[in-house]
Structures are given as C-alpha cells and as structure tokens.
C-alpha cells in the first residue's frame, strides 16, 4: 500500500511538471501578447476602445473573429500604412480613415498577436517573419 501511494505521488508530480512546462512557442506568444497589449494601450485604444468595442460607426470594433481571420495577412499593412477604403465588420460598413502607425515589424507582430488573441479571439502566434512577408504584399 505504501509503495502504491509513493508511486502515484511521484507519477502525479511528474505529470503536473510535464503539463506546467510550456513549449518555447507558447512562451514567445505570451511575450508577444503582453508587449502587444502595451502597444495597443498606447496606439490603438483611444479609438478602438479598451475592449476592442470601437466607437459608434467612426471606428470599427476588433471583435469580429471572422474578419480578423480572413484579413490576418492584411493587418500588418493596415497598421503600418493606415486605411482609407471602407471595411465591413460585423456586417456594418465603416468609412472612416485610419492613420498610419510607423512601428517596427516586431511591434506590428506583437500587436497582431494581441488583437487576434484578445477580445474573445484565439488565433495563436504570428511571427515577425510573417509580418515582413505580409508587408511586401501591401497594396
């Protein structure tokens, strides 16, 4: 009986150790998310709101998961160059103009990780390399 208790305790410890370990990618994603949140507070929250709720029909919300997923490759271009063409979010057309934000690629990547994982989204990691590729295809 004592042996059994000992074995189960040891195995439980091992299992919990295994699960508490994050993969390297997870750690990086969390770091991007946290930094992205700071950047969001500084550059985006004024208009897009603390919960990504937008402002009237002046500023679109960032809560449309389908929009975020479908336009993920365009997010870098929108952040870096601004946008003046209408966008449709949650079925509502937004015509306003968003100014450009001259940020480093890594900052853009961190922002993208934050806005695609906060506000009810869960779209995972986005690397600086991906941002670089996206920026080559800006219209």
């Amino acid at each position: 009986m004592r042996k059994f208790t000992l074995i189960s305790l040891v195995s439980l410890t091992l299992i919990s150790m295994f699960y508490s370990c994050q993969t390297a990618e997870n750690v990086q994603q969390d770091a991007y998310y946290v930094n992205g949140r700071d950047l969001y507070l500084k550059h985006c929250q004024n208009c897009h709101g603390a919960k990504g709720e937008g402002l009237g029909t002046l500023t679109p919300p960032l809560t449309d998961s389908i929009f975020m997923k479908a336009n993920k490759e365009k997010l870098a271009c929108i952040i870096k160059n601004g946008i003046s063409t209408p966008v449709t979010v949650h079925g509502q057309v937004y015509e306003g103009k968003m100014p450009e934000f001259n940020l480093a690629n890594i900052d853009v990547a961190q922002l993208v990780v934050y806005i695609t994982n906060a506000f009810g989204h869960k779209q995972g990691m986005y690397t600086t390399q991906q941002i670089e590729n996206d920026l080559k295809n800006c219209k």
Binding site: N46, C47, G49, L55, G56, L58, T59, K97, P99
Partner: peptide
C-alpha cells in the same frame, strides 16, 4: 473630427 489622440476618449465618455 480628425483627432486621433484624446477626442475619441472624451467623446466616448461624453456619449
């Protein structure tokens, strides 16, 4: 209207 700094916050609150 084209202000991107404090105006959106002010008007969000005033609204």
């Amino acid at each position: 209207t084209s202000c991107t700094s404090i105006c959106p916050i002010m008007h969000r609150n005033l609204k």
